[in-house]
């Protein structure tokens, strides 16, 4: 298993969002998180990436197993595309950035400063960063924002190649990537029960009380 999540509860700003989340990812599997805005998809991914502590529960993944890609791409505006990518490659102890540049079709842009890229091109560079991490588990938060249809297909192809090479991916996205092999997890059923004052249904959970 590349990732095992058991009875996980996460909170944002002191308010419990999700509880009882449990799933596992084996090599070659992809899981798409779905749910309305604010349900806690980003918070769940940040907890799994280790950026935020969990309220309860367990996240098991191999040490240095995951690469996280959030809403921001982590690009430096004054560095060129090739320099940005080479920096992240060296941080992860990799040397070769050529396959990542080819996979995201950035070859023609390699010497352009990142500040001159369009939003979609920046996103492609942000996703190319995943390819140079060499990590087996990808944690992707809205990876397709500002990508056009062709770029989404290109991204889906690199996810498929990653899965075929024994990797796994956990992503929060609202659009259909055309990944037939990906399972979907609807987070709505894990929504934390909040004991709003005066709700009047007689249900009071002491755990929720701590966050009310």
């Amino acid at each position: 298993m590349l990732l095992t999540v058991a009875d996980l509860a996460v909170a944002r700003g002191g308010i419990a969002l999700l509880e009882g989340v449990a799933f596992a990812l084996a090599p070659g599997q992809a899981l798409i998180l779905r749910g309305p805005n604010g349900i806690g998809k980003t918070t769940l991914l940040r907890v799994i990436a280790g950026l935020q502590p969990a309220l309860r529960g367990r996240v098991e993944l191999p040490p240095e197993g995951a690469a996280y890609a959030g809403h921001a791409d982590g690009l430096k505006a004054t560095l060129t595309v090739a320099e940005n990518l080479a920096f992240w490659a060296r941080i992860y102890g990799q040397r070769d950035t050529a396959p990542a540049i080819a996979a995201m079709d950035l070859g023609a842009l390699a010497d352009r400063p990142a500040q001159n890229l369009s939003a979609g091109q920046k996103r492609r560079l942000g996703l190319a960063r995943l390819l140079v991490t060499g990590r087996r588990l990808w944690l992707l938060d809205e990876p397709t924002v500002s990508l056009d249809a062709a770029s989404v297909a290109m991204f889906a192809a690199s996810v498929r190649a990653h899965l075929a090479a024994g990797g796994a991916a956990l992503m929060a996205t609202h659009i259909d990537l055309g990944l037939a092999e990906a399972a979907t997890l609807d987070l709505a059923r894990f929504r934390a029960k909040r004991s709003a004052p005066g709700r009047g249904d007689g249900f009071e959970d002491p755990f929720d009380g701590a966050f009310a």
Binding site: E64, A66, G70, D73, L75, I91, Y92, R129
Partner: peptide, 14 residues
């Protein structure tokens, strides 16, 4: 922090 690099550095192997 603004451009997200800090999140990525915090999850990096250093």
């Amino acid at each position: 922090r603004e451009d997200g690099s800090l999140d990525l550095l915090a999850t990096a192997p250093i």
